[in-house]
């Protein structure tokens, strides 16, 4: 059975690409097919799984669900683990649940059910500890347009409790990192979209968080600005920072991420390294073929098949009872 998922509109006319991904390590969202902790569930190679045992965990999620008051299940049973230092990507269309999932990790939303541990702290009991140890770059550029670039970063330094004596150096270092040193005293409202994004990224890094969330950081940017941001993200990751990035663009995920999870309707429908997920590049359509035993996935597919196509949206069967 082939289910077509349109993951994005083309980023820009010059970068149209097409790909069809065949995922063989499909993980079912129902948990009655064994423990979720098996390496296959993460789509990781044996190698990676064995080294993961000695690595520390940045994010550990067990059966996360988030249901909005209107009954919409934005996140519907996500289980995953991200080891420290990894560049991890969430790939999926608008409304798939990427942002909601990241907001739960960043303590902006409380999970309806499931366990979420970020940097060793539980999201429910120790949200403030998590806030101290993460950087969060929201999907919408979030900067104070009335303040200068320098003042935006300085405010973030103060908000994150960067020691007073280190603030000036930190501000200069971050302005340098995102190449905004020569416009440090200009108000952010005068900046281009790409400059604002870079400033936003810098403010998320003031406290040198070991874990950074980037929610569609390059959406709406021209290819040049996007390429520059990619370089900064690589640099941050090279320092040992764990990064969780969401994107609609397979190319972005492919360029940056060590490992990917494809999210659709609030569940991880495929995951693995970009090489594992990718077969052909050339367009904006990601096709996920569900393989494995027909009986194993029959029930799941009968629930899902009407929802996997964005062109024919229909209510999710599970929501009717929610």
């Amino acid at each position: 059975m082939l289910t077509s998922i349109v993951i994005s509109e083309p980023a820009s006319k010059v970068e149209v690409h097409r790909c069809t991904v065949y995922c063989t390590n499909m993980s079912s969202p129902t948990s009655d097919d064994g423990p979720r902790e098996s390496p296959d569930d993460y789509g990781a190679s044996e190698q990676r799984a064995s080294s993961a045992a000695t690595e520390r965990t940045a994010i550990d999620v067990d059966d996360l669900e988030l249901v909005y008051a209107d009954g919409t299940a934005a996140v519907d049973g996500v289980t995953m683990r991200i080891p420290e230092g990894e560049f991890f990507g969430f790939l999926g269309p608008n409304g798939a649940g990427k942002t909601t999932t990241i907001k739960v990790f960043a303590t902006l939303l409380s999970p309806t059910s499931g366990e979420v541990v970020v940097n060793g702290f539980d999201v429910r009991s120790e949200p403030r500890k998590i806030r101290e140890t993460i950087g969060y770059m929201a999907q919408e550029t979030s900067i104070d347009p009335e303040l200068t670039a320098e003042e935006n970063i300085r405010f973030a330094c103060e908000a994150y409790g960067v020691p007073r004596g280190e603030r000036s150096d930190r501000v200069a270092e971050l302005l340098d990192l995102v190449d905004l040193g020569d416009v440090a005293d200009k108000r952010a409202e005068e900046f281009s979209g790409g400059m604002k994004k870079r400033l936003d990224a810098a403010t998320a890094l003031v406290h040198r968080p070991p874990l950074v969330f980037l929610d569609e950081p390059t959406t709406g940017l021209d290819p040049k600005a996007r390429n520059r941001l990619w370089e900064y993200f690589r640099r941050i990751n090279d320092r040992g920072t764990t990064i969780l990035l969401t994107t609609q663009y397979l190319e972005e995920a492919d360029q940056l991420c060590d490992r990917l999870a494809v999210i659709l309707d609030g569940t991880i429908v495929a995951d693995g390294t970009p090489a594992e997920l990718k077969r052909r590049v050339g367009g904006e359509v990601l096709d996920v073929e569900l393989e494995g035993g027909e009986s194993e996935h029959a029930e799941w597919k009968s629930q899902r098949k009407s929802t996997c196509s964005r062109t024919q949206p229909s209510p999710k069967p599970r929501l009717a009872s929610a």
């Binding site: 140890t133 960067v162 020691p163 040198r208 690589r234 640099r235 320092r239």
Partner: peptide, 19 residues
């Protein structure tokens, strides 16, 4: 962007102290 001045993981962890 270049890699000059990029601190290693260990150095970054040491820098994590906050006021």
């Amino acid at each position: 962007p270049d890699s000059e001045g990029v601190a290693g993981t260990a150095a970054m962890r040491d820098d994590l102290q906050r006021s």
